[in-house]
Design a protein around this nucleic acid. Structure first.
Lengths: 201, 201
DNA sequence: GTCTATATGCAGATAGAC
DNA sequence: GTCTATCTGCATATAGAC
């Protein structure tokens, strides 16, 4: 899975992650990555040949954080209703640690949609299989309406948007006060779980 | 509001919109915009002085499409529950016409958050006033839980994510078939309305 | 492996003819 | 107003010394 990095490579990838996540592929500068890593520009090329390959390493890593975790939770034997709590908490916590990952991924998958194929193949995701499994798992009667597709899109939409739209939302609704926004994010875990469960009634 | 454009200016802005929405500020090339407009690079500078000013024109226009419309619906006298249907349809239709606008705005507000201030001031949005008005409008009893902030974020999240994440979602859930995805989008109008209303019970 | 110095190419912007 | 030709600066990438 993870190519094991040498110490210097790790230094570079960490710096690259920071810069790429903030600026995107086009906006990032090799110089800035080098500075951030405390090394020289030429070294970047020594280790990663070119900007594209360095970017790919970061992007792949980001997407791998985004998805495989969800799969693990979806396929295990936890009752479906409990999966909701677990998934919501998991994503909120993950995005809170690294808020820029959301807009980064959104931007890059739209820039270069083909890149996803590779990452998905590498990580061996078979969402169609999961879909099947979940459909079977749903206890008919308890849940009046269920579409796996809509459920997944609902969940991610409810979670993702405040992170992706933060600069806008914080200004429009919270007088641009970061603390108010953070409180809102914390509340939101509960709200999202509630909405998702209601959506199944 | 809209500076009235001359014929050539309009030609340029239309081309610029197309390119900027697809590539973002950093990824866009003045040459490409010129080609798209069927004119010369130098003319871009003649009319808009530099890339930044041209970009600002496009960005402002995009944000103005994004928000003022929602305000209009929120403040009028329609019963709140009906506003939901209207808003959902409005945004879906708008984004379907111009799918790239979503990831464009997400990217740019995160790149340069300060830019929003200007646009918001220009368009005179006072969301705090609307918030107040809506809170009063809610019929207590019929609606058990209401937070304007969460409701707005829920609504936009549910609507926006399929547009922003399309390349990913289409591959993960619909074997990368655009038609299947479009059917899904159409279904989604109903689903989102339903989920939003359930969330208020 | 790590650096300095340099090559190469390209994008944004300007000069100036028509 | 619109064009061609050109300048300038900068970013990626390479050469080559240590």
């Amino acid at each position: 899975m993870n190519k094991e990095y040498t110490e210097t490579e790790l230094l570079i990838v960490n710096a690259a992650r920071k810069v790429f996540l903030n600026k995107g592929m086009d906006g990032a500068r090799m110089q800035e990555i080098a500075d951030e890593a405390g090394i020289n520009k030429a070294l970047l090329h020594y280790y990663f040949r070119n900007k594209q390959k360095l970017f790919d390493a970061v992007f792949q890593e980001a997407l791998e954080k985004f998805f495989p975790a969800i799969v693990e939770v979806l396929i295990n034997e936890t009752p479906f209703i409990d999966k909701i709590d677990i998934l919501v908490d998991m994503y909120f916590d993950r995005f809170k640690e690294n808020p820029h990952i959301v807009s980064f991924i959104i931007h890059e998958i739209n820039q270069n949609p083909e890149r996803i194929e590779n990452v998905m193949k590498e990580s061996g995701m078979r969402l169609d299989v999961i879909k099947q499994k979940i459909q079977e798992m749903i206890e008919v009667g308890k849940i009046s309406f269920f579409s796996f597709d809509h459920f997944m899109v609902n969940m991610l939409g409810l979670i993702i948007w405040p992170f992706a739209g933060r600069p806008l939302i914080q200004r429009m609704l919270f007088e641009n006060d970061p603390e108010k926004f953070d409180d809102f994010l914390e509340e939101r875990k509960t709200v999202v779980k509630r909405v998702l469960k209601k959506s199944l009634e």
